[in-house]
Design a protein around this nucleic acid. Sequence first.
DNA 1: ACATTGTCTACAT
DNA 2: TAGACAATGT
Length: 577
Amino acid sequence: MGIKDLLKFMKPYIQPIHIKNYAGKRVGIDAYSWLHKGAYSCSMELCLNSDGEKKLRYLDYFMHRINLLRHYKITPVVVFDGGNVPCKAATEHERHRRTMANRDLAMEKLKEGNVSAASELFQRAVSITPTIAHQLIQVLRSENVEFVVAPYEADAQLAYLSSLEVEKGGVAAVITEDSDLVAYGCQAIVFKMDRFGNGEEIVLDKIFDSAIRTPSFRNFDKELFTGMCVLAGCDFLPSIPGIGIVKAYGLVSKYRNLERVLSVLKFEKGNQVPEDYSKSFREAVAVFQHAQIYDADMKKLKHIKPLPQNLLQSLDGELDFLGPTNGIREIPPSVATAIAEGNMDPISMETFDCSPSPRYDSVPIRIQRSGRLPRVEAAATSARNSCFVAFSSQKTREKKQEPVPKKAKYVNEVGTLEKLIEPSVVIRETEETTIVERNSPLKVPDNNPFKRIKLDEMPSFQMVESQVSVVTEIESLDTFLCVSPDSLTLEVPDEEFSWKGKPSGVVLCETKRISEVASGVTQEENLDVLRLTSQSQESVNSKPIVSGGKRKLKKKSEQLKSLETKNSSILNFFSRV
DNA sequence: ACATTGTCTACAT
DNA sequence: TAGACAATGT
């Protein structure tokens, strides 16, 4: 939901952009927003938890977008939601209630045989479960995509990342649908990014600097702005009746002090103002300013902005609205890290099972994180009764690296990928990767390999780490190659992200070396990671687009004609470029 | 007259 | 889920 009507109100500061503007930069992604969109196409399957390929379409959707970014030389950093913030409990509860109501209704319709009514209702009943998120995490690992699970709100984590220097893991912009990011003070945000990379951008500095635009925020600072957002109504606190974004803006710009606004409101609205509004208001503002996030560098939780002394005093130690911070519920660093790295369910605190999603099953996984970010290296294999997980924390890496040949190259069986494409053109390197099986000490019963391992069944997290080993580090290969020449002709004109070829469900992984091996592949200097699936294929299933990196506009209008009959959204895309 | 609240529909396939 | 538009309230 975000801040009510905020984007509409901020319209003068929103401008269309193409994501390629962030070429060469790191960009944060709110996983939830893409997962939710992706889940539409398979909402019934997800709700019914039916088996089969279709259920996993959301992965295709997500990875298509990831690959779009990578195509434009953008480094995606995917951020997942973690535990719920207490403030948001009411919102969450209501959301859950509606979801369940829709699901029940849908089931009824389905029983009646009214499938279309049912699927409509299922679309409203999709909820993104930890299982779904974790399935995506496994794919992200296998595709070398950086990710982090926020301790609480992904938005807070994203805002934090946007405040960091690149060298410290910072991002230049955040892609999301949630206007909360603005309230969190995120520097650059891209909303409504479509599958071609078109979106709408809002840049915080411009808001505070602009002298000409209305509404003007020249007399605002971040805190006032956040206060305005909270007044207008947010997930943490509904607005006072009669107060919307416009009035909130009016009040804040008139009084330029949140406390004064509160007292004016009490005076003017009297009994309409809930008893504890002031307290809740301050807490909500404090969440936006001081939310807990995961510091990947220090491998521990901290606040976006340190809590100032006066806030600590005024709240008298009651900081639980920021998420449990003290006493017995404190999250120890090892757990914070396990959550952040996607190995533990942030809500149930159970470690995730390792059952790979069927389609990506048996894809050896290797994560190469840039710079100083934590490394998690994980592998899953097709051995159904096995579960491979390899952590590589600083500590364990030192311990474990020794037996691993330093220059070991990647590879290993290609598994599912291999089945999907022409074996003859599967390119892989052929040295061993060391994967050590994690087994009985963790009490995974043989007959039920996917049983969840409860935290309390584990002696400690250190033990887990020491019992698994590190997947060999590979030097330069970013992703292994799988190319099927006749399923693919990649052509990547400068302004587009498109291709032709047979729909094939092929998983296509990158690199510049593609052209060396697969005949018929257009060599394109900037050819980046692309992954074709039948789904993404269909999205541009019209005319082949002639290759040649730098075609310009005159040719485009011709294409346009040939394309428009088949796919109006493509037209849309071109017209916006 | 303006702001807020309510309702419809696209989302993706 | 959220934007666009219409209806309603102050």
